[in-house]
Design a protein around this nucleic acid. Structure first.
Lengths: 138, 138
DNA sequence: ATACAATTGCAAACAATTTGCAATTGGAAA
DNA sequence: TTTCCAATTGCAAATTGTTTGCAATTGTAT
């Protein structure tokens, strides 16, 4: 669990004003284990009366500052997640269960790929999600 | 370039009726080099007066039948692409230029990942896109 | 040639996300 | 501290992307 001070630092490093909505949203995101849509995150903010529009704008600025990333789950809305530790997901296309994973080999492969690229010489980010049927559903 | 007969076979294999809109959409998709949104694809269909709704429904059924896949380009709409040959993309976040790539090592890494998984024992599909700044923009 | 389920087009609804603008707020500078 | 200004927020309304309902049409198995 991050302290108030650490949260404040995250904002400061990103050169973002230390406002109540931002702190609350950041605290909330820290409690979420899996990617959620803006609507879902907004429900969690209920008691704090933070406008959905503010949430969208905050997510956008967090995204620009690499605090947050989008995750494509092949659904019809955008899923967001804190991006403090790099990881990926396996998604069950039947029950929507999620499993996180990390993998260091991927980075090596990506480096090889980029060295072969004509138009690019480095990568800033990448997305990788796996889809399948979980053991329970199978 | 695929012939009429091949297109017909693609539909038949997917157990989809061989209708004019589907053939036209499939032909169109075959001519597109990079993922496009439903709106963009629809513009290409102009002369053929195929309804945007039909396109959405067709893309959905093609997707279910693995003829088409969604590609997440971190934009605010869904991008679609024919999925006849497996590949990924590198995206320039500045000028939106795209480069395709294939990589066989990825599959090996994915197999390792799945063998470590608690909840999953195999993967049906995966998405992998890279984001960066292209040489021209850098 | 017929019949029925699958597919289509149109209109309208819906959901997610963005924009405009006036009021409020945080923090740098006095 | 107090002042001041740009950054941020909330509300209302607009926009964009996507889906749904239903009657008319079409493809294919019989």
């Amino acid at each position: 669990m991050k302290t108030k001070v650490e949260i404040k630092n995250l904002l400061q490093n990103a050169k973002l004003k230390n406002t109540t909505p931002r702190v609350v949203i950041l605290e909330t995101l820290l409690n979420i284990k899996h990617p959620e849509t803006a609507g879902e995150i907004h429900k969690r903010l209920k008691k704090n009366k933070i406008d959905l529009v503010t949430l969208y704008r905050t997510l956008a600025s967090f995204e620009k500052n690499k605090l947050v990333k989008r995750v494509d789950l092949h659904k019809d809305a955008i899923y967001y997640e804190l991006d403090l530790d790099h990881h990926h997901h396996i998604v069950c296309t039947k029950c929507n269960k999620l499993e996180r994973f990390e993998n260091s080999e991927i980075e090596k492969v990506l480096n090889k790929i980029i060295s072969k690229s004509v138009k690019f010489k480095n990568i800033k980010e990448h997305s990788l999600e796996l889809f399948g049927i979980c053991k329970k559903c199978a």
